[in-house]
Nucleic acid binder design. Structure first.
Length: 933
RNA sequence: GCCGAAGUGGCGGAACUGGCAGACGCGCGCGACUCAAAAUCGCGUUCCUUCGGGAGUGUGGGUUCGACUCCCACCUUCGGCACCA
């Protein structure tokens, strides 16, 4: 054996990735191998990876994202697709400007220097990017069209300017979109500083025009996770818009998802900023209301950390009228009602809304239950001395459970016995006392009469009666507050579920499933409201008070107002001679010669808009600029568009789900409606990869000092090894902390492929073992199937492991003397083809060394033959009572009866049966036999 | 609080549609080669064991001939949203 090995394992030259890789990269580039050209004869595939930001150095995480996508794109190309894999840079943004302030480098210089370095690093990866399509968002030839898109939106009422309370980052000195404010403590997505609210005149895009279409994912193959995140972000809720009138006949519009609880509205709440506050406030409350508003708005202006969930509010002195039951209810203002959601006003139903319940309890406002408890629990607390002797015995006799403490009874009434209990209570209650029945009933049984807690009037009456009889309850301001004082009652006083309507006039008794629609219908017939849909998403705030971005092409003229810069004057060039002062002011604001221009319409004195656009605006259409980055008759060449669009596969991180990935869909739909693009969706298939973290498990960043430099890894192991390791060591969808522990395995594998290929290159076939030849062929075809299927699914780790298995098999075949045979050569050749998308350089080098025609990357993907992949023999697993007792090798096509027979004949099985007769024998064809005794 | 995802050896991670848990690697152990080491190659490697076997995929139950996989409850971690009416 050892001798055999020595004769076949020739000494081969060393594998030197440092020499091989740059050589092939240069040749591929010189040959234009990766140019994507329109070719109507081949099916196209537009493969897009998320636009990298020009932060400077790439870290290993970029490699994880980019090299796996490259592998997948290369695979598609070998499968026969005409693939375009473009690359470019997201080059505007805050870090460039911050570097300018900190280190006195011009943002432009900083950015383009970074791009040069990133380009060099990216090229060392050996990816199939078409660099002739490179697009840089800060190039005037790019942002000319970003501005052009803005103008189309502006002219079609999709862009507008309005005064609005917006999030402001005090460190970066700019406004942020709502999506860019993250976490529990509402910090800036970029720098982590807590944001504050500012009231500013800002530019918005009408993304809310497209909400319903954005919720429709039926035309795209996107991960459930992203679809769910976007759905939640858009936050559609159905309900009703209801109009209440104040006593002065001013309408108060509210949105509610629970019109069925309308009879339980016992007060209303306006947001402190609500325009009606001023009007409704009564003279005697004016001072306290104003003070509250001042406090509430100052609170939101301060850092929001101290945001206490404790409810605050103040009565306005005004009343509104419930349109259905005519009740006059007080109008309060409170900070828990937000001006930015719904109509900025609510009807408060404390009986069935947690927040209203808390508020009502705190301020002693009445609470009415109007939806029956779906759980049927009913309770009654019978105070000692409130009923006749023998009450407890009567309960026992009826079978109503209770516990007794110091003479008082805590009764839990079974639903079926509620009527019996009511009768008992009525018969036994003593004068000057009462019994409550709470839960599915809201009865107060007094000796002379029974009250139901069903109207505000009764609520008052009950409280009065009780307070008359019992001094201890005189402190309470509402019936509910009185009941809340008994811990025994707490779990039946409140619920927010759907259920049968009660205490709701003519609608009482309406079943849960009809309650919403019936109430809405009545509102509509009374002209007091209608069905309505409300959304959480707000319009996209796109203006930024910073320099390094695309200037908004608008001129503000005293005479003409907001005037669009004529399209032929685009781009509005960012002036190079800006000055950064530590004031935090945008340098554009302080640049007089740039800022002051004549009005394009009246030629009078006017000022340029000094805000620049959110960089998400640039990245909303970069996939279109890739089509023709230097085209100057429009944002893209229509011929290129018609061939390549839409994007077939898009890869990137899930962290963009509610930002870039919503914006770009909106952008596309808006452009479609303006006749600029075609189709409903820009990207058909989306796949999210995970993130490579620093070795410490934290996100890689310069400030944490945990950045892994890919240059260093490439120098040490070669680009192919780094690529293959990133694919092998992590689940693509998960990522994980960087560790170089496993990379040795990949390095060994690649070296093994190298020596195996070159060491057998000139081998002459011997009389090999024919079963081994068959085994090799079988493994080869199984591997082709596995590698293809897993590449389709972006499961790179199992792709590599399958290739390692194949390599091991080829190794065994060599040791068995198969080298030089046709099947052996075919196996090596196929192995190289299968490796080509993953480790492009070594595959090309070995392909050339074996004398095959250049380039391996233009070859066809190996063909899978199911027949050749088939196993002839299988291991039949024999179980007794579900436990594996024997394994018998049998022919693969074995029939059930034969399998049963063989299994029952096994000696070990007979031993385990211990003479007992099998009760049942289950045969799973081609797998196992389970004998049950 | 609400919504979602995930918990498998010392480690990274496999496992089709309910059918041999731990593929492929790392690490570790033993051996070969070597004066020696590295590299390379071979063998072994879930745990316990009286060597018959037993236990085992976060925990506890359930369904099934059979469960990492399906159902119920719970625990932990991560992600999203959060006074959203």
């Amino acid at each position: 054996m050892a001798e055999k090995q020595n004769t076949q394992k020739m000494r081969v030259e060393r594998y030197e990735p440092g020499e091989i890789e740059p050589r092939w990269q240069a040749k591929w580039e010189a040959d234009g191998l990766h140019r994507a050209r329109i070719n109507s004869k081949r099916p196209k595939s537009y493969f897009l990876t998320m636009l990298p930001y020009t932060s400077g150095d790439l870290h290993i995480g970029h490699w994880f994202i980019k090299s796996t996508s490259d592998a997948r794109a290369r695979y598609m190309r070998m499968k026969g697709f005409n693939v375009m894999l473009p690359i470019g840079f997201d080059a505007f943004g805050l870090p460039a400007e911050n570097a300018a302030i900190e280190r006195n480098i011009h943002p432009k210089e900083w950015t383009y220097k970074n791009i040069d370095n990133m380009r060099r690093q990216l090229k060392s990866m050996g990816a199939m990017w078409d660099w002739s399509r490179e697009a840089i968002s800060s190039d005037p030839e790019y942002y000319r069209w970003t501005q052009w898109f803005f103008l189309q939106f502006f002219k079609n009422d999709l862009a507008y300017k309005k005064m609005s309370p917006v999030d402001w980052c005090p460190k970066d000195n700019t406004t942020l979109a709502r999506e860019q404010v993250i976490g529990d403590d509402r910090v800036c997505e970029r720098c982590g500083t807590p944001v504050i609210k500012k009231n500013l005149n800002q530019w918005f895009f009408r993304i809310t025009n497209y909400v319903d279409e954005l919720l429709d994912f039926s035309k795209i193959d996107w991960p459930d996770r992203v679809r769910l995140l976007q759905t939640h972000w858009i936050g559609r809720s159905e309900g009703a818009r209801v109009t209440f009138l104040t006593e002065a006949k001013d309408p108060i519009e509210v949105f509610t998802t629970r019109p069925d609880t309308l009879w339980g509205a016992t007060f209303m709440v306006l947001a402190p900023e609500h325009p009606l506050v001023e009007k409704i406030v009564s003279a005697d409350k004016k001072e306290s209301v104003e003070e509250y508003i001042l406090q509430a708005t100052r609170l939101s202006d301060l850092q929001r950390e101290a945001l206490d969930k404790d409810k605050t509010g103040v009565f306005t002195g005004g009343y509104a009228i419930n349109p259905l039951n005519g009740e006059h209810i007080p109008v309060w203002i409170a900070s828990y009602v937000l001006m930015t959601y719904g109509t900025g006003a609510i009807m408060a139903v404390p009986g069935h809304d947690t927040r209203d319940f808390e508020f009502a309890l705190k301020f002693g406002l009445p609470i009415l239950p109007v939806i029956d408890r779906p759980d049927g629990s009913t309770k009654s607390y019978v105070v000692a001395g409130s009923v006749m002797d023998g009450f407890a015995e009567a309960l026992e006799k009826k079978g109503i459970p209770f516990t007794e403490a110091q003479g008082s009874l805590q009764v839990s009434v079974p639903l079926a016995l509620v009527d019996d209990y009511i009768a008992l209570a009525k018969a036994n209650v003593l004068p000057d006392s009462w019994v409550e029945i709470i839960g599915t009933q809201w009865l107060f049984v007094f000796a002379d009469r029974v009250f139901e807690l069903d109207t505000l009037e009764n609520e008052r009456a009950i409280l009065e009666h009780c307070q008359e009889l019992e001094a201890a309850v005189r402190e309470f301001r509402s019936v509910m507050e009185m009941l809340w004082a008994h811990p025994f009652y707490r779990d039946v006083l409140f619920h927010s579920e759907y259920g049968q309507m009660i205490h709701s006039g003519a609608l009482s008794g309406t079943a849960a499933d009809e309650a919403l629609s019936k109430t809405t219908k009545i509102l509509e017939s009374e002209n007091a409201g209608e069905f309505a849909v409300n959304y959480r998403i707000r319009d996209w705030l796109i203006s930024r008070q910073r320099y390094w971005g695309a200037p908004i092409p608008i001129v503000n003229c005293e005479q003409c107002g907001l005037v669009a810069v004529p399209e032929e004057d685009l781009p509005v060039i960012l002036p190079d001679d800006a000055e950064w002062l530590p004031t935090g002011q945008s340098p554009l604001k302080l640049h007089p010669s740039w800022k002051n221009v004549p009005c394009p319409e009246c030629d009078g004195p006017a000022e340029r808009e000094t805000d620049t656009m959110d960089t998400f605006m640039c990245s909303s259409w970069y996939h279109l600029r890739y089509l023709s980055p230097h085209y100057d008759e429009g944002p893209f060449d229509p011929e290129q568009y018609d061939y390549w669009m839409p994007v077939d596969t898009y890869t990137g991180g899930v962290e963009h789900a509610t930002m870039h990935l919503i914006y770009t869909r909106f952008f596309h739909k808006a452009c479609r409606d303006l006749g600029i693009v075609k189709g409903d969706e820009p990207m058909l298939q989306l796949r999210n990869q995970g993130q490579i973290l620093g070795p410490d498990g934290q996100r890689m960043s310069k400030s944490r000092g945990n950045v892994i430099d890919p240059d260093e890894q490439v120098r040490q192991f070669g680009a192919d090894a780094v690529r293959a390791y990133l694919m092998f060591g992590y689940r693509w969808t998960e990522g994980g902390p960087w560790s170089s522990d496993n990379i040795q395995g990949i390095v060994r594998w690649i070296n093994r492929v190298w020596t195996l290929t070159l060491g057998t290159k000139d081998a002459v076939a011997k009389q090999g073992d024919s079963s081994e030849a068959r085994a090799l062929e079988r493994k080869l075809h199984q591997t082709i199937a596995k590698v293809s299927a897993d590449l389709e699914k972006f499961e790179f780790n199992t792709v590599i492991s399958a290739l390692m298995e194949l390599t091991n098999r080829i190794s065994t075949s060599r040791d068995d003397g198969l080298a030089g045979s046709a099947i052996f050569k075919h196996a090596i050749e196929s192995l190289l083809l299968l490796m080509a998308p993953l480790t492009p350089h070594i595959a090309e080098e070995l392909w050339a060394k074996l004398g095959y025609a250049y380039s391996i990357h233009q070859q066809k993907w190996p063909e899978f033959d199911a027949h050749k992949a088939q196993e002839e023999r299988i291991t039949l697993v024999v179980q007794v009572n579900g436990k594996v007792r024997d394994r018998i090798e049998v022919a693969a096509g074995i029939e059930e009866d034969a399998a049963r027979k063989i299994a029952l004949g096994s000696e070990t099985v007979i031993k385990f049966l211990g003479g007992k007769t099998p009760k049942r024998v289950i045969v799973v064809k081609g797998r196992l036999v389970n004998i049950v005794v």
